[in-house]
Design a protein around this nucleic acid. Sequence first.
DNA 1: ATGGCCGCGCGTCGCGGA
Length: 280
Amino acid sequence: MNQYRIATWNVNSIKVRLPHLLQWLEQQSAKNQPIDIIGLQELKLTEDKFPFDEIEKAGYYSIVSGQKTYNGVAILVRKEALSLVTQDRETAFLDFQKNIPGFEDEQQRLIAATIHLKNIQPLRFICGYFPNGQAVGSDKFSYKLKWLEALQSYLHAQLLQHSRLLLVGDYNIAPKDEDVHDPAKWIGQNLVSDDERKYFFQMEEMGLIDSYRLFDQIPKSFSWWDYRMMGFRRNAGLRIDHILISPALKEKAALCAIDKTPRTWEQPSDHAPVIITINQ
DNA sequence: ATGGCCGCGCGTCGCGGA
């Protein structure tokens, strides 16, 4: 059976992490499990500085919404996986969109495109770098909630147009206490507070499914670990990177996993990639 | 021990990250 693998990864600077990205993509291909689409977050550079050529040499087309120093998101698609009619750079990403329509924002946090892979129906792929929020009650937290509010309306409209939709990225929300290494310590804090979790649950009420929880997972599985305090070695992490899928994709989902391998490499991103496997 | 780490920028500390 044909399967496709779709991933998300907050790379925390594409300039610094390009070798890791290329190594990881190569490693997946070598296992005969190539990543067909990947959403990247926290590029921390403008589009003119994005390494399009190196990534294309590795077999991927990219589209980018970049910003100096902060934020920035991209979608990569494996050229070989593209359908015959969308094999060119110009047709690989259809209905390409940067930012949430109608939401004025300097910060580059969202990018979306429709992608036609070989032998399967088109996928609407939305990649988001949700605001961090800094601290509950801060200005940045208000911005986070406004952004989440705008995202809800956008998603509602997108779901009406696209039955096969994925929303991937760094949500900066740990939806449940099982997604938190020490829930008692984190109670009510940024990333975990009810105010932001409410939006995650609203997305689920809209029909979106947290694909990671469709499958058995090891307890205390996380996607981010603080650089400080030996977070990774102590497994003091949070699960804040997610792949939500629309109902039409639920029966097609075969697996969802976090790959901690790149987090063990020298000079890693603080986030690990999350991968969903979709049956044809 | 509530800190400790990173990446970035006209930088050699402050900010943002989560």
